[in-house]
Amino acid sequence: MAGFFTKLVQRFTKAEIDWDDLEAQLIAGDLGVKLSMQIVEDLQAQARKLHDVDIVEVTKKHIRALLPAYTTPLPPLISGKPKVVLVVGVNGTGKTTSTAKLANFLKKRGNSLVLAAADTFRAAAVEQLEVWSKRVDVPLVKGPPNADPAAVCFDAYTSAAARSAQFLICDTAGRLHTRHNLMEELRKVQRIVGKKDPTAPHEVLLVVDATTGGNALQQAREFHKAVPLTGIIATKLDGSGKGGVVVAIQQELGIPTRFVGTGEQVDDFAPFNADTYLDQML
């Protein structure tokens, strides 16, 4: 991640700005063609003022302005009922790990919670979350093998409510956004928890792998259509992926990035901070 803007600094502090190169660098950050071109155009419009100015700072400021001033943490409900958080996304993005990380984050913050192992499909997905639940010491509700994920979430809600837990986090199975029946399954989970609390689910977080290119925008569009998203968790930012597509998702769909994952350990997780996100690139 570092080096991305450093490269820009070296190239663009000179009086002449190579716009094609700037565009290429933005594309390399997976910001997407459309957004990259738009940023370049916007900056070109101010080109006269830009000579001898640090284009890095200008570009950073420009991207910063596309992101919300701040993103809300996850406050518990005032009603005292469990706040239901669905963790969704395509296969292998880091949902289960992020569920554990989020649980750990909330627990450390002093919140009580319950986990639902609603990936009843993938081999050993329940066992994976079980290991995490023990590590972060948070109760887990699971169903029999191949159980209906909606039923697992329903039961988990009952258990969370009985324990007066402030949060219920449901880890769902990975599914490609193109699979109609699997997206329907997610809607069913949404409907069923809605029977427990008409305002649930309160948060639907889409987990996006920072290594993903333009398809992440399509993933966000389709998941948002099926179960309205309230935020993004961008994972694997410790890799070489810049996760620029979250900026495109914010811009097109207005869905903010709420958390970032920066490793495989439970503490490699933090609320999204736009300034840090951009600064880390420098």
Partner: peptide, 12 residues
């Protein structure tokens, strides 16, 4: 590799 890999594919 995942079919949805972005611009980091070269580096990977």
């Amino acid at each position: 590799a995942d079919a949805a890999t972005g611009q980091q594919a070269v580096s990977v």
